[in-house]
Design a protein around this nucleic acid. Structure first.
Lengths: 115, 115
DNA sequence: GTAAGTACTATCCTTTTTGTAACAGATAAC
DNA sequence: GTTATCTGTTACAAAAAGGATAGTACTTAC
């Protein structure tokens, strides 16, 4: 178990800020989570994540810029685009898993507390 | 390794949303991170986290409501208040650790990429 | 009484984020 | 030609978040 000194905490603070800069906000982690079940098209993502096209477009651009999502244009009748997680995005697995687990745990705690 | 089906992803999506509802935003995880080095007073927190009193007050109230931080009023000459992490907040350790690790990793990747 | 320290709160304002609705360009089906 | 699909973009509006500044209330020290 690591000690938590003031200095180690300021480093931790910076690291957490860095992480939040990339995957903070309301949608980034949700989108990554949704994309874990496979590559998806734009409208498909919009429906599954429940996100409007405007925001989706912006979020995907940012994720792509940060190397977490790749964009592939397909030569189909109406041009389709496939969004897919990159290998680098796998480095976020621990974060996602931890947050999923905590979400489950916390919801359970809340529900029990109410009844 | 878990499979990522559409259903498991929608559960994951909900769990992540739940987590973000509690510790999302710019400050919550930073504050928890800072408090890991021990209980702190209001101004102390404000300085160390670099957060203005107005926001700090609001964030602390929310953290307290969600059982992650406890508030203790001390009988000192000028009344002081100590904020401290609760036992329940320890359940966030995995999340914090994962995000710290990723932040380090990502920064390293960026710095190398630039040079 | 003046200043300084603690813990906030109030007010005002700016920035960021999010959402809605409509529309554009391309292609295909009817 | 009209309608539909897919991928977005644009314009506009609303809401949420964040920040700056000052002020309140209490106490101690000078």
């Amino acid at each position: 178990m690591a000690k938590h000194t003031v200095e180690s905490c300021s480093k931790a603070k910076m690291a957490i800020r860095d992480t939040l800069d990339i995957v903070g906000g309301k949608w980034k982690l949700i989108l990554i989570s949704v994309l874990r079940s496979g590559k998806k098209g734009f409208n498909e993502l919009s429906r599954e994540a429940g996100i409007s096209p405007r925001i989706l477009s912006k979020e995907l651009q940012e994720l792509e810029m940060n190397g977490l999502v790749s964009r592939e244009v397909c030569n189909t009748k109406p041009v389709t685009v496939q969004y897919e997680l990159t290998d680098y995005s796998q480095t976020l697995n621990e974060v996602l898993l931890a947050m999923e687990k905590w979400g489950y745990l916390h919801r359970k705690k809340i529900v029990q507390g109410v009844e």
